[in-house]
Design a protein around this nucleic acid. Structure first.
Length: 769
DNA sequence: CTATGTAAACAAC
DNA sequence: GTTGTTTACATAG
């Protein structure tokens, strides 16, 4: 189709221009916003239901609304005077009761805020809304991307899968800013996507998903959207080769597959390759296998058969199934893509984002519901003390990025996610930044700009924890390479199916390697595993590589920390999966977290190649350190990297405390959480840190989060254009509470709301008023 | 610049 | 011919 010489195949995803500004076309009418009410009926109902139910349980004045985009997520508007703890307790109970199927994430927002606000600016416009609405929206459409984040975010709770779903949404929130933003996006989506049916209903039903069994093979159908999917089958899948390879490999129990099987799997699952694609696609597959460090080649014991595996640290265990599901729900993207193409006019189309792959993906798109979406009762006002927020992932695509904060967990939430809200773009720039409490520390130094660095870290933060630590510790900077071997971390053994895997690169260059020894670093290494013989052979290989490396081309891309982009999914089911991360030691949930973390980065994103020094790759890496980023990442933080940071416009945020975050939420100490009347307060206030309390202790000193002092960092920086607000997100699944910062910029406003202190939640969310 | 896709040259089996 | 690696280049963001 595409005939471009070079790229015969073009991914559609890229194609779609953002409607954003142009949007006009797309949604002209629609977007204009439908009043919330109008939205999907189904949604509405759902929301109502929820509300009702909630209302029962909770003190009066509390409004609960289903999050428009996030499944299993509700936005809870809490009056100032309400007893937060009790509410949290109630929500927690509720969430638990509901289990994965029900709402398990709650974004807490204080409503009365308006009152509080002295600020003057309450937005008028919005105000108007207040009265109006009572209802809200609901689920539906979430933006897809969110899911990913979700994963990330999600702690390990129950099953990841569930989480994902739950969280998936990420998001959330309700933030609806003003109309503008929201509408467009989502509405648009809705309409355009047509998700409709499939997604919506199913969404609610997520449950199904939960158990998905997915045979991976057939995933397509699972959803039922088969038609859509099928249609798409003839088209090039929206997944990168790297993603497809991962899907293929992860579809097996042992998580390993021969090249041939990979080809077969892909052909089976994506007819496009079987029937339409040029033969060269196989070459591309091979190319990807060789290029990305996350793919590790193992040789069978006898040495005759080579299996390709995914480096545990990088493996998110994504399966097509999972991705597919997620997409459905939350995002309609795929759907969109598929359908859209045909249906929508170009303008209308959204761009597809590469699902899995792109690094940028780290960013999670967040969608905000349209403003309307939330509605609180008029009467209710919440002060906002709470910040609630949400987070989860979201999608981001738009213009901005949101970072997701990790769960509160331990120390830090710090993670921020940057999201870009894709859709919204046009509308408004609303950004969310999640920050943990501490978060902020920005990376002072660096300009942050680079996302990448961030990326890696950013999301990861969580993940890394374990790995990171280890690395850190191990590394230090230099751990001898020897140490590396330690890698054991990677749980290779267990995880790795193959008994004796020999990885090409044993040395691992990645991580360390680059720097280290000149020696070879073959791609992957799991040292322990390989047999001697292999080692030798490997060595040879390595040598070659080294040479090459010297050269510059793209070499294998090293793993990096994860990113999120991908659809997240976390694995779920996989038996094996479970542990890999042995390392995780720290966390209680380790596994999941870890996994997430690692995975995040992993899979899709290519790890950064950090490049060896030499390597051809340009890694931009700022971090010279490690090539292997993925592991290393954390440390970085220490170093000043930011992990999670949000990148604010200017900068970024800081790092995560890394590990901290990971810790676990389980104990969330919500109790003491302060509520903030206005977003502004939040900003000013220190993070409350959950972390501090409970975790603080836990957190290693080193880890320390910059938080307190630092707050400003972010803020200031942010201030420039944005405003920040904070919110709390209660994830009952995880028992975690997270705080996030929302960075919101209003189009209309010149100033940042923040800057003006005036800002109130209501401004952001009219309904609250 | 980076990530990704494609093509192709080579090398080892 | 298959499998792996690399290099080179193109394209989109």
């Amino acid at each position: 189709m595409k005939t471009s010489p070079r790229r015969p195949l073009i991914l559609k995803r890229r194609r779609l221009p953002l409607p954003v500004q142009d949007a006009p076309r797309d949604t002209p009418e629609e977007e204009p916003k439908r009043p919330p009410a109008q939205e999907e009926p189904s949604q509405v109902q759902a929301s109502k239901e929820v509300a009702e139910s909630n209302s029962c349980k909770f003190p009066t004045g509390i409004k609960i609304i289903n999050h428009p985009t996030m499944p299993n997520t509700q936005v809870v508007a809490i009056p100032n005077n309400a007893d937060i703890q009790s509410i949290i307790t109630a929500l927690t109970a509720k969430g638990k009761e509901s289990g994965s199927s029900g709402p398990n994430k709650f974004i807490l927002i204080s409503c009365g805020g308006a009152s509080t606000h002295p600020s003057g600016r309450q937005p008028q416009p919005q105000t108007s809304n207040d009265s109006k609405r009572t209802e809200i929206i609901t689920e539906i459409l979430g933006p897809r991307p969110a899911t990913r984040d979700a994963n990330v975010l999600r702690p390990p709770g129950p099953t990841l899968g569930q989480r994902l779903e739950n969280c998936a949404g990420g998001d959330t929130t309700g933030c609806t800013l003003d109309n503008s933003l929201t509408n467009i996006q989502w509405l648009e989506k809705m309409s355009s996507d047509g998700l409709g049916s499939c997604s919506i209903k199913q969404e609610m039903e997520e449950k199904e998903n939960c158990h998905p069994e997915q045979s991976q093979v057939k995933m397509e159908e699972p959803s039922g959207t088969s038609t859509c999917w099928q249609d798409s089958m003839s088209q090039r899948p929206p997944y990168s080769y790297m993603a497809m390879i991962q899907f293929a490999i992860n579809s097996t129990e042992r998580k390993r597959m021969t090249l041939k099987d990979i080809y077969t799997w892909i052909e089976d699952h994506f007819p496009y390759f079987k029937h339409i694609a040029k033969p060269g696609w196989k070459n591309s597959i091979r190319h990807n296998l060789s290029l990305h460090d996350m793919f590790v080649r193992e040789t069978s014991a006898n040495g005759k058969v080579s299996f390709w595996t995914i480096h545990p640290s990088a493996n998110r265990y994504l399966t097509l199934d999972q991705v597919f599901k997620q997409q459905k729900r939350p995002n309609p993207e795929l759907r969109r893509n598929m359908t859209i193409k045909t249906e929508l006019p170009l303008g209308a189309r959204r761009k597809m984002k590469p699902l899995l792959p792109r690094v940028s993906s780290y960013l999670v798109p967040i969608q905000f519901p349209v403003n309307q979406s939330l509605v609180l009762q008029p009467s209710v006002k919440v002060p906002l003390p709470l910040a609630a927020s949400l987070m989860s992932s979201e999608l981001a695509r738009h213009s901005k990025r949101v970072r997701i904060a990790p769960k509160v967990s331990a120390l830090c939430f710090s993670q921020l996610v940057e999201c870009v809200t894709p859709f919204t773009l046009p509308l408004l720039p609303f950004q969310l930044l999640l920050a943990d409490e501490g978060i902020a520390p920005l990376p002072p130094a660096g300009p942050v700009k680079e996302e990448k660095p961030l990326l890696g870290e950013g999301l990861l933060p969580l993940l890394p924890v374990q790995s990171i630590k280890e690395e850190e510790t191990q590394h230090g900077e230099d751990m001898p390479q020897l140490a590396r071997p330690i890698k054991v971390e990677s749980p290779p053994l267990e995880e790795w199916p193959s008994p004796c895997p020999s990885f090409k690169e044993e040395l691992s260059h990645s991580w360390e390697d680059s720097s280290c020894s000149p020696t070879p670093r073959p791609k992957k290494s799991y040292s322990g595993l390989k047999s001697p013989a292999r080692c030798v052979s490997e060595m040879l290989v390595i040598k070659r590589r080294e040479k090459r490396e010297m050269s510059r081309s793209r070499r294998k891309q090293h793993l990096q920390p994860p990113c999120l982009d991908e659809p997240e999914l976390v694995f779920s089911e996989g038996p094996s999966t479970s542990r890999r991360v042995t390392e995780a030691p720290l966390l209680a949930e380790p596994v999941s977290h870890l996994r997430c973390l690692q995975e995040e980065g992993g899979p899709f994103k290519t790890p950064i190649k950090e490049t060896l020094p030499i390597s051809s790759t340009p890694s931009k890496s700022i971090l010279p350190k490690t090539p292997e980023s993925w592991r290393l990442t954390p440390p970085a933080k220490a170093e000043g990297l930011d992990f999670s940071p949000v990148r604010t416009p200017q900068g970024t945020f800081g790092s995560l405390p890394d590990s901290l975050g990971l810790m676990d939420l389980s104990t969330t100490p919500l109790k003491s959480i302060p509520l903030f009347d206005s977003p502004r307060e939040l900003l000013n206030s220190e993070p409350f840190d959950l972390a501090s309390d409970p975790f603080s202790s836990s957190s290693p000193s080193d880890l320390e989060v910059p938080k307190p002092g630092s707050p400003e960092l972010q803020v200031p920086s942010l201030s420039a254009n944005r405003s920040l607000t904070e919110g709390l997100v209660l994830d009952t699944m995880n028992d975690s509470l997270s705080k996030i910062l929302l960075d919101i910029s209003f189009p209309g406003l010149e100033e940042d709301p923040l800057s003006s202190d005036n800002i109130t939640w209501s401004q952001f969310i009219p309904e609250l008023r």
